[in-house]
Design a protein around this nucleic acid. Structure first.
Lengths: 189, 189
DNA sequence: CGGATATTGTACCGGACGGTACAATGAGTC
DNA sequence: GACTCATTGTACCGTCCGGTACAATATCCG
């Protein structure tokens, strides 16, 4: 019986960082090898499908993290407002207040989208849906909740782009603060 | 005396499209050659600095287009509201209602940002500044106008990401509609 | 121990990459 | 026509790309 190695998460996190910083095309196997300390032999042992499988596993891993730390609070919190606040906190810490970029968002922009279209659509779709659900449960109408949710996720993604473009994490913090206000969450600081 | 070839704009537009679709790394000289119908000889004749100079020229060209069609109306329109409406119209048509991606935004996300950091910061900085100016002239306080401007550009960028991720141009249209409402511009349709 | 299986390092593959060299062609000018 | 200079096609460069092959080594388990 084989154990599921817990280091796999750590490995995927490192690979994710390479994809995040260099994009799908820019993340060469050499870079991935250097970052992980693994040679091609090992890399292809863990990911026989090569680079594409690595990226797919990375997206799945990110998706799982969001499922657990972002979507679950939205879905399961008795108080939808508290769930939304948990989501915003998790989002802020995940993106390191805008110092980190959204890998899925970056993949969505260039041609690598074609390879991972399903996973990308899923990730954003579930984020919007779960947030909209929470908003409905906190009293909004369905149509308004859906628009508000879509607006929120777009605001986060846009703030990441702008924060990185201007090299100013303030952009991201301000975007999150505005989001809290708009969604009726009491400001955290 | 040499004429400034008017075809240069057209050439840059084609090269821009390749960068837009494939990203900086993904846009190979072969792809650029095929799209433009030019061999390497011609390409390196027009851009002795190679791919990097091509990208720089493309960003400059885009910047020029925005200067003329987006920033100028914001700056020069007697009625700031009309200027903002012109900016939104130009933005919608430039991004083809979300079918097209923002090249500068895409460059901002991956490592190619390091090469073009100045140009990227400039592009977004001027966009935000000019919009904030117009908002001040239409009666907002400076602080509020700045936040509103930053929020607007982030909303546009995020909507582009989301539209592309979900393959749904409705995302972009809805974002523009919300922006009009938030900025106090009467809806156009 | 032994044997099986998981993991690794290394050498190698064909092809594409960005870039260069340069001779041939084109077009405008006197 | 002859000179000039812009433009182009082509062949080539060294390097890195993603991927494969495979033998050597760990690791686990009986």
């Amino acid at each position: 019986m084989r154990r599921i190695a817990p280091e796999r998460d750590q490995l995927l996190a490192i690979v994710a960082e390479v994809f995040r910083e260099h994009g799908y095309e820019g993340a060469s196997l050499t870079l991935i090898g250097e970052a992980t300390g693994l040679g091609k032999g090992s890399l292809y042992h863990f990911f026989p499908g090569g680079k594409e499988e690595m990226a797919r596993a990375v997206i799945d891993n990110i998706d799982g993290w969001f499922e657990e730390n972002v979507f679950a609070p939205l879905r399961d919190s008795a108080d939808p407002g508290a769930g939304i606040e948990q989501m915003l906190g998790a989002t802020d810490s995940y993106f390191r207040s805008g110092r980190r970029v959204c890998l899925v968002g970056a993949f969505a922009l260039d041609e690598s989208r074609d390879l991972f279209a399903g996973q990308i659509r899923d990730y954003f779709g579930r984020w919007v849906t779960h947030l909209a659900d929470a908003l409905v449960r906190s009293g909004h109408g369905l149509a308004e909740a859906t628009e508000l949710a879509e607006e929120t996720i777009a605001a986060i993604q846009g703030a990441l782009t702008l924060a990185r473009a201007s090299d100013d994490t303030g952009v991201f913090s301000r975007a999150l603060r505005r989001t809290r206000t708009r969604l009726g969450i009491p400001p955290s600081d």
